[in-house]
Design a protein around this nucleic acid. Structure first.
Length: 284
DNA sequence: TTCCAGGTGCATA
DNA sequence: TATGCACATGGA
């Protein structure tokens, strides 16, 4: 067990497989804020649906302060041993640097509705503006309770027009969002947890603004499907740098090859590689 | 000015 | 089934 749960906090002792910076900044989630950072510790606020936590991490431990301990034990997937996963992934030589760099990544268990909306906005966009748009949306239609804005319910999202979304700077995705929200009124997202990868892909890609890549992200970050390998512009770069014999730009083929290579560890591998490549390219 | 960012929809062949 | 273009937006 890597954590200890108390009434209003979770203490994570094993920092070889939990690093709040890696977890939040690896690109899987958008609604978080760095509250402060000094030479001793770092503090983030994270909002998921209507839940909120503040995480303070120093050299010895990470403490997750929250009213909803059980929610965040599941959210951070604290019952899974990531050292075992990383050990298996190290069988692939290219993974070594990526895992050393993002050793504290954990794949979050996010809420389906929030993940769907977030990743529709993510298409052909950059992370900074995805965060901006989501925050604008939340701050405009949710009330500030206990110092933060929740993610809106489906009911609240129903009130938003294309023009509203345009004001949140989602660009041409505004209409996709309105259409998908309309469709979701007749969908039980909880029932999607039971579906296999193929069925779930069919359901998700039938929604406006969701293709293979966005569906993969939703399956990975909300439905814990570890057999998927979302291929975006960064993974295409990774593939051509470390895996390809000759340059490949067909993302369907890239996805086929990577899922074949990593099997049921695909989702984990993808996230270590994405974070590593993106951060490395930022620095130079 | 052009390119790029966690791509998708749609028309066309 | 595969290919190519349009699509908002703002930073580099």
């Amino acid at each position: 067990m890597i954590y200890l749960a108390e009434k209003n906090k979770i203490i994570v002792k094993d920092l070889t497989q939990f690093n709040i910076k890696h977890i939040l900044e690896c690109g899987q989630v958008f609604r978080y804020n760095k509250i402060y950072e000094n030479d001793k510790e770092i503090c983030y606020q994270i909002i998921s649906g209507t839940y909120e936590a503040k995480v303070v991490q120093n050299e010895q431990e990470a403490i997750i302060y929250t009213r909803d301990v059980n929610y965040f034990i599941n959210y951070f997937d604290l019952k899974t041993d990531y050292n075992e996963i990383k050990r298996k992934l190290l069988a692939y030589p290219v993974m070594k640097k990526a895992i050393e760099f993002g050793y504290g990544i954990r794949i979050l268990k996010q809420q389906p509705l929030e993940t769907i909306i977030s990743f529709i906005i993510s298409a052909n966009n950059n992370i900074k503006r995805i965060q901006f748009s989501l925050n604008e949306m939340c701050e405009n239609i949710c009330e500030k309770i206990n110092g933060y804005y929740s993610f809106p319910s489906l009911q609240a999202l129903n009130n938003l027009t294309t023009k509203n979304f345009a004001n949140f700077k989602v660009g041409y995705r505004a209409n996709y969002l309105v259409e998908t929200i309309k469709t979701l009124n007749n969908v039980d997202l909880q029932s999607y947890y039971k579906l296999d990868e193929q069925k779930l892909t069919e359901k998700l890609t039938s929604l406006k603004g969701i293709g293979q890549k966005v569906a993969d992200c939703i399956m990975l970050f909300a439905f814990s499907k570890m057999t998927v390998f979302p291929v975006d512009t960064w993974i295409e770069k990774v593939y051509n740098a470390y895996f390809a014999k000759e340059k490949e730009s067909n993302r369907k083929i890239i996805r086929q090859n990577l899922t074949k290579l990593f099997g049921n560890l695909s989702g984990y591998a993808q996230q270590y590689l994405f974070y590593y490549k993106r951060e490395m390219d930022k620095k130079f």
